[in-house]
Design a protein around this nucleic acid. Sequence first.
DNA 1: CGGTTGTTTGACGCCCTTCAACGAGCGTGG
DNA 2: CCACGCTCGTTGAAGGGCGTCAAACAACCG
Lengths: 216, 216
Amino acid sequence: MQSFKAGELVVEAGSPVLLQGATSPYIFTVLKGWAQRNISLEDGRRQVVNFVFPGDFIGLQSAILGEMGHSVEAVTEMTLCVFTKDRFWDLFKNSPERAYDLTWIASREERMLGDTLATVGRKTAQERVAYALSSIYRRSKAQNLLIDGAAPMPWKQQDLADALGLSLVHTNKTLRRLREQQLAEWRGDELRVHDLGKLSDVGHYDLSATLTRPLI
Amino acid sequence: MQSFKAGELVVEAGSPVLLQGATSPYIFTVLKGWAQRNISLEDGRRQVVNFVFPGDFIGLQSAILGEMGHSVEAVTEMTLCVFTKDRFWDLFKNSPERAYDLTWIASREERMLGDTLATVGRKTAQERVAYALSSIYRRSKAQNLLIDGAAPMPWKQQDLADALGLSLVHTNKTLRRLREQQLAEWRGDELRVHDLGKLSDVGHYDLSATLTRPLI
DNA sequence: CGGTTGTTTGACGCCCTTCAACGAGCGTGG
DNA sequence: CCACGCTCGTTGAAGGGCGTCAAACAACCG
């Protein structure tokens, strides 16, 4: 992958990395920092489609489809590994393993989106928040990001609300309930989970969603 | 693609093609008929993740990730083109163009799912139904499936409800409103749309979502 | 002609949204 | 050093969009 690397990029918190509807000559891998993918309607309503962690890939849609269906916004300062899109096709021709990896990434993203859709479409507020926190905690853990047992939680409550199709107020009240039930505690920018199994149960988190790249 | 073909399969209406959580040695392309992808929660709640049209690909998740995140259920009798999974890797090694196509398909699926998520998460019932009908009509048109200007509509109202995160009753009442406003008319198994632009507007359908495979 | 499946409609209630206000933390400037 | 403005979190009150319950209707079929 090194030969495709075009450089590194640092973006500050709050700034957009890729814009919905735009085409970018670059694609990225997150080396440090957190972001979110979101879709905006013309009238300002916003859906957070996914949270972005270190190690995640950004811009596949732009590279493959030619246009982004969502924006990517940095939530903290980020360090990105930059690749140029124009050498993308070479990758398929000369490096089938990497090409397979890309398809794997796209498929996993599709899988995550499906699970999120089921969550937003069919679960109660309490189940949705439990699902999201459980998912964030698991992903942080999988990337070795836990600090003293807590997951970094740089997002705002508004972001979580927009990810779950809930209002800010109700998200806040639901977080309180989960706190009172000792299921999850989100204070400042860290998330503590005492009983991950219980939290996942409440959120109907599907354990088979934890995917590891299979050997070919 | 012909050399990968292992045969044809006919499944009857209502039967499952692929099961959530299962691994299948086969992947399919739809030659005839319609289906739906859906995710089930243990307690019976159901989310229809997408509607499946002739020409669509089925089973990519199983082939790439090793396990399906959703089930695929035939809605009408279907004729499927069958491929075996075990020759999948050869495709990446020997046919980079086809490999690229697969990634393109996975990316487009991700794009559609994102738009659906924004719909279910952030739109009103009227907007959701208008979006779904608009999308179904457009996809039917793109595949040359219109019969006398109407799109085949083999699904049930319960399916649409489960796709949009709404109850059956409310979906029915919303369909009535759209009918009264002369925006869309779903009678029996055909869907008529008088003013596609207007319907799309009501549903906040993003026109850039109509994707055509780019030349490499 | 009963049985089954899917559509339609009305009544009622609740989960969640909206509105509104206050508090906490923090950087900035007088 | 305090006042201020801003952002974000928190909480209460009130209202509405949508879910649930229930029943009738329509179409198809053995």
